[in-house]
């Protein structure tokens, strides 16, 4: 399912003394099957963009097209369930949305809201729980008896059980330890490939953006600052650094090496192995060009 934002503007609390412009003139295309990463500072408008992807916010100007549905500024929009079923959002700290007595019921909650039968929802819960790497026994437990990491996985399972075509992730690994972080990111990547989903990842981690995304959008002060492939975005690291953003550690190291040797490698490498090879070859050549 394709999603596109056309010249979207959003104002919080429009027409009040507390009005605040969050994003302006944002145009983004997310063709089906894309893995898009949205990066930028807190307050750059990332989360506002994210909430337009399944009509949690409606643009105050411009329009959003989600599949066959168009959501236009200034129009009353009814019955958005169809949109929300297809676009699942995993919010930051999603464990805060758990509320049912058992893990199973909580995972079934989403699908059943969208009219999936109880029997089917139960099956989906079973499938989703193993997808997130938790044992089936956990389905009978109360979500509030679990560890933080397990709760996070249960909440993610609750979104996966909706079987969305687009998955939107808002800092899904915040607060997890390194192992947890890697497992969750790998899980989403595998799903993305296996189910041919569109994935939108809002993140502070340049490493994750470089590693997983096909396309990166850099948000700055409510606008799209630049967009392109990871190679393209990180081939101009200075621009990002000027915005006060990080670059992936590999890129940062490459810049430092280039500076020390007063040289410039042919390309920006996004993986550690590649950089190591480039450095090895460069040094074999005598440390000069």
């Amino acid at each position: 399912m394709d999603i596109s934002l056309k010249n979207v503007e959003y104002r919080y609390q429009a027409d009040s003394p507390f009005e605040r412009l969050a994003i302006t003139d944002v145009s983004i295309d997310i063709p089906s099957g894309t893995y898009l990463a949205v990066i930028g500072h807190t307050g750059s408008g990332k989360s506002t963009v994210l909430q337009h992807l399944n009509a949690l916010l409606k643009p105050t100007k411009g329009s959003v097209v989600i599949g066959s549905r168009e959501i236009k500024a200034g129009r009353k929009e009814k019955n958005l369930k169809g949109v929300r079923e297809k676009v699942g959002i995993v919010f930051q700290f999603p464990e805060h949305q758990l509320f049912e007595e058992t893990v199973e019921k909580d995972i079934m909650f989403g699908p059943m809201n969208f009219g999936v039968s109880e029997r089917q929802a139960r099956e989906r819960a079973r499938a989703a729980i193993s997808l997130v790497g938790l044992p089936e026994e956990i389905l009978e437990k109360s979500p509030f008896d679990l560890s933080g990491g397990q709760m996070r996985r249960v909440a993610i399972a609750g979104v996966l059980a909706m079987e969305p075509e687009v998955i939107v992730l808002d800092e899904p690994t915040a607060g997890l330890d390194p192992r947890g972080r890697k497992e969750i990111m790998d899980l989403f990547y595998t799903l993305h490939k296996k189910r041919n989903l569109s994935t939108v990842l809002v993140t502070h981690s340049m490493e994750d953006a470089a590693r997983y995304a096909d396309e990166i959008i850099v948000m700055h002060q409510g606008k799209v600052f630049t967009k392109g492939s990871p190679e393209h975005i990180f081939s101009n690291p200075k621009a990002l650094i000027e915005l006060g953003l990080d670059v992936p550690e590999v890129v940062g190291l490459q810049l430092k090496i280039e500076e020390a040797f007063g040289t410039k490698f042919k390309k920006i490498s996004l993986s550690e192995e590649e950089l190591a090879e480039m450095v090895a070859r460069f040094l074999e050549g005598g440390g000069t060009k």
């Binding site: 550690e249 940062g252 190291l253 020390a260 550690e272 950089l275 190591a276 090895a280 040094l283």
Partner: peptide
């Protein structure tokens, strides 16, 4: 990174804790 570089044949005497140390050693 120090470890990967060593595997790729870059001569480094040990693993470095900061990027600065690593770059200085390379240089």
């Amino acid at each position: 990174m120090s470890k990967i570089m060593r595997q790729k044949g870059v001569g480094l005497s040990k693993s470095y804790l900061t990027e600065e140390e690593l770059v200085t050693e390379l240089w």
